[in-house]
Design a protein around this nucleic acid. Sequence first.
DNA 1: CCTCCAAATAGAAATAACTTCTATTTATAT
DNA 2: ATATAAATAGAAGTTATTTCTATTTGGAGG
Lengths: 153, 153
Amino acid sequence: MERYCNKLKAGGLKLTPRRLAIIGLFVDHNTHFTAEDIWSRLQKRFSRCGLPGVYRNLESLVECGILTRIQQFDRKKHYGLCAGSHHHHHITCIRCGKVDNIEDCAFDSAKKIKGYTVVSHFIQVNGVCGGCAKAAPHRDRVWGKGMFVCSEK
Amino acid sequence: MERYCNKLKAGGLKLTPRRLAIIGLFVDHNTHFTAEDIWSRLQKRFSRCGLPGVYRNLESLVECGILTRIQQFDRKKHYGLCAGSHHHHHITCIRCGKVDNIEDCAFDSAKKIKGYTVVSHFIQVNGVCGGCAKAAPHRDRVWGKGMFVCSEK
DNA sequence: CCTCCAAATAGAAATAACTTCTATTTATAT
DNA sequence: ATATAAATAGAAGTTATTTCTATTTGGAGG
Ligand SMILES: [Mn+2]
Ligand SMILES: [Mn+2]
Ligand SMILES: [Zn+2]
Ligand SMILES: [Zn+2]
């Protein structure tokens, strides 16, 4: 927690109760959350807190390097603690929506592709997590109708 | 074009002027378009065509296997002709927004990751296309403020 | 050709996930 | 303690779709 307070200060951000609570949620659960996830969990302690406030804080925490943001295919932004801010990707459970880091990235950024100069890349893996695999077999979560669920196979 | 008409019929879809015009646009330009791209290009010929109609048609064309849909980080869906419907990924120019197919995929779907059973994966590469690299150097396109522009490096 | 009807179309309204705006409060350096 | 830049709340706005409710129309069958 010390570490995060320092990052806040370094970024010129105040240590508000709200922010500390949000960081606390990420530390305690060690997982990725959407703005709404955070918002609903804050309700108990900060009943007068709206979604705009949550977004503002999450973005501030991204800017000062405490959180990373990933855009998922459910069209939502998901936030999680920066894994030392080193390059990594994510795997998502198609049943429960859990997100985990994938630490090693095999992508070769130096390779030329179709005349493009590669600037960045993004890898998203979908799967079924251990917990959901053990649970009673049921249909995989159906995302929004027009939702792109990644190239199968 | 014959080939696409057959796919339409096979999918139980009518050969309407609208649909043939949309397919024509993809064939002529051989690139990926958003619904709005298509809509603005249809205006000359079909002045009374709204965006909902374009979306409906694009989704029908995806369903019958004529188009593929990819969700880009600008939060828009982009559509393109199916490359024989074989597994492929995409590279996007961060300056002009052009999308090209990447035909060979090195991802190992068999590898177990963090206890997950891998179901699918998605790779998105961002870069600068040949045309934009030759053009006068200017700042890279700035996507929406909170936009995820993929892990740099 | 003509008829019919499932499918397609149009336009308005609704939705989801944010983002921006304006006014009011608060953390913190001095 | 004060001053002030930053944070907060709630309302309103935005964007990219999606849904809804009539109103046409492509094309199979006669
Ligand atoms: Mn992560
Ligand atoms: Mn493609
Ligand atoms: Zn799961
Ligand atoms: Zn380009």
